[in-house]
């Protein structure tokens, strides 16, 4: 993957204007205006046509010109969106847009997005400068997790014993009940482990945001906004967490990445958060 964005002198961002018929402007995120985009950054449309800047004042939008008939949402386009933003976030502050933001023209990006919200975006970028997001995830290994649950919940172990050798067809309700009890036990462990992760990682972070689990064996899923100067401290802390929990779960750390979990849409009347 190409190095995406580095702070440098301006580039001429208007040279490739509207060369596509039925073109549209895909927007990745907002950055300070004094950044430079690598010419070989790969865009969401899978072409090497380049990701460019639309500038206004002290801020700029990272954009690709795409065909308006393009269907987005393939794995390639999802990966391209995140890879580019994450690579950018490692170098400069960036406000990531949710996947799928498309406007009609570069002029519209300036007039409707960058101009009216210039000060708000600029202030957020200043605040974000020198920071990036990291995501820590713990996921239980299945068998150790189940053994631990059976060990500490005798009634679950007993139910499992009772139906073990009975045919599935006649014990469906019992199996559902067994699974539900296990799920409750997993949820209780998840809550405790998440709390312990947060307690350990909070002192290293500017902000912490607990993510909803997206896998039934998630043990903890936490997004952190971290000063990039403290990255190695964070890595050490996560490594220690991984070692302490090695018998039950795998722990992964991803980042630096764009601050998806920490950018907020400020205007209340348009609040879209669920």
């Amino acid at each position: 993957m190409a190095k995406s964005t580095a702070r440098k002198e301006k580039v001429d961002s208007m040279t490739s204007a509207s060369k596509k018929q039925n073109g549209a402007i895909y927007i990745y995120g907002i950055v300070p205006a004094d950044v430079e985009v690598s010419p070989d950054a790969r865009g969401v449309d899978g072409t090497d046509d380049g990701i460019t800047l639309v500038e206004h004042g002290e801020i700029a939008a990272l954009v690709s010109e795409i065909d308006a008939d393009l269907t987005l949402g393939t794995p390639d386009s999802l990966m391209a969106h995140e890879e580019f933003l994450d690579a950018t976030a490692a170098e400069v502050p960036v406000l990531p847009l949710r996947f799928g933001a498309v406007m009609t023209t570069r002029e519209a990006v300036v007039d409707e997005l960058l101009t009216p919200y210039h000060d708000q975006f600029h202030a957020a970028l200043e605040e974000l400068d020198g920071h990036a997001q990291f995501v820590v995830r713990g996921r239980y290994a299945e068998q150790p997790m189940l053994f631990a649950i059976l060990e500490e919940n005798p009634e679950v172990a007993q139910l499992a014993d009772e139906i073990r050798d009975l045919p599935e067809e006649t014990t469906r309700n019992e199996r559902i009940q067994l699974g539900e009890l296990i799920n409750q036990a997993v949820a209780a462990r998840r809550e405790a482990d998440t709390e312990s992760f947060v307690e350990t990682l909070e002192p290293l972070s500017v902000h912490v945001s607990v993510r909803e689990p997206t896998h039934e064996r998630d043990a903890a899923y936490v997004a952190l906004l971290v000063d990039l100067d403290r990255q190695s401290e964070l890595e050490k802390a996560v490594k220690d967490l991984a070692e302490q929990n090695a018998d039950l779960m795998e722990v992964t750390l991803r980042g630096p990445m764009a601050s998806y979990d920490f950018v907020m849409t400020a205007r209340q009347d348009t609040e879209r958060w669920d």
């Binding site: 995120g29 498309v102 997206t214």
Partner: peptide, 19 residues
Amino acid sequence: DSILDKGLVIDAYVRVSLV
């Protein structure tokens, strides 16, 4: 997990020139 329901929502800012 990161990009479909997180990040700035464009139509909270822009209404006219969305595609």
